[in-house]
Simulated assay, not measured.
Amino acid sequence: MKQVFYITLILVLCYLGADVLIRGEEKAERPIVQLVAGASLIGMLVYNVYYLGKRPKLWKFFGFLKVWLFFVITGVAYFFFSLIGFPSEYASVNVRSAIILIYILTTIYFFYNATVNRHLVGKTLTMLIAVLMFNGITEVVIALNNREVKLGVEVVNTSAGYIFLMLLPILMHRYRKQNFWMFAMCLVLTLFSGKRGAVVVFVILIIYASKNFRKVFRNFKLDWRAIIFIGVLLLAGLYFVESAYDSLMHRMVNIENEKRGTVGSGRDVIWKTLLFFWADASLFNQIFGFGFYASPKIEGHVAHNDFVEYLIDLGLIGLTLWSYLLVRFYKNIKRLKKYDNYLYTLLLFCLTVFFGRGLFSGTNRTDSIVLSISLGYLLGVVYLKHIIPYLSNRLSKA
Rank of each mutant, 00 (worst) to 15 (best):
T8F: 01
L9A: 10
I10Y: 05
V12D: 05
L13Y: 10
L13D: 07
L16T: 00
V20M: 00
V20E: 00
I22C: 10
G24F: 03
E25Y: 05
K27E: 14
E29V: 12
I32P: 01
A37V: 02
L41F: 13
V49S: 15
Y50C: 10
Y51I: 07
Y51R: 03
K57C: 12
K66I: 10
V67P: 00
L69I: 06
V72Y: 14
V76C: 05
Y78K: 01
F79P: 04
F80S: 02
S82H: 02
S82W: 09
I84Y: 13
S92I: 08
R96K: 13
S97E: 15
I99G: 11
I100N: 08
I102A: 03
Y103R: 14
T107F: 04
Y109C: 03
Y109H: 03
A114L: 06
V116N: 00
R118T: 09
L120M: 04
G122A: 07
K123N: 14
L125M: 12
F134H: 11
G136Y: 02
I137F: 14
V140W: 11
E154P: 06
V155I: 11
A160K: 06
Y162W: 13
M166L: 02
L171P: 07
H173L: 09
Y175P: 03
R176A: 12
Q178L: 09
Q178K: 15
M182G: 00
F183K: 02
V188L: 14
L189P: 03
L189C: 01
S193L: 13
R196K: 15
G197K: 07
A198S: 12
F202C: 03
F202K: 02
L205N: 05
A209V: 07
S210D: 02
N212V: 05
N212Q: 07
F213H: 05
R214W: 11
K215Y: 12
R218N: 11
R218Y: 07
N219K: 13
I228Q: 15
F229W: 15
F229T: 05
Y239E: 10
A244Q: 02
D246Y: 11
L248R: 04
H250R: 09
V253I: 13
N254Y: 04
E256I: 00
G261F: 09
G266C: 08
R267T: 06
D268E: 15
I270P: 01
K272S: 11
T273A: 01
F276L: 11
A281G: 08
A281H: 09
N285S: 14
I287H: 12
I287V: 15
G289P: 10
E299W: 12
G300I: 10
H304Y: 09
N305H: 01
V308Y: 07
L311Q: 03
L319E: 06
K331W: 04
L336C: 04
L336K: 08
K337Q: 08
Y339N: 06
Y342W: 05
Y344N: 06
Y344D: 02
F349N: 07
C350S: 11
T352Y: 05
G356N: 01
G356I: 02
R357A: 06
T363I: 09
R365K: 14
I369N: 11
L371T: 04
Y383Q: 06
Y390T: 10
R394I: 01
K397N: 12
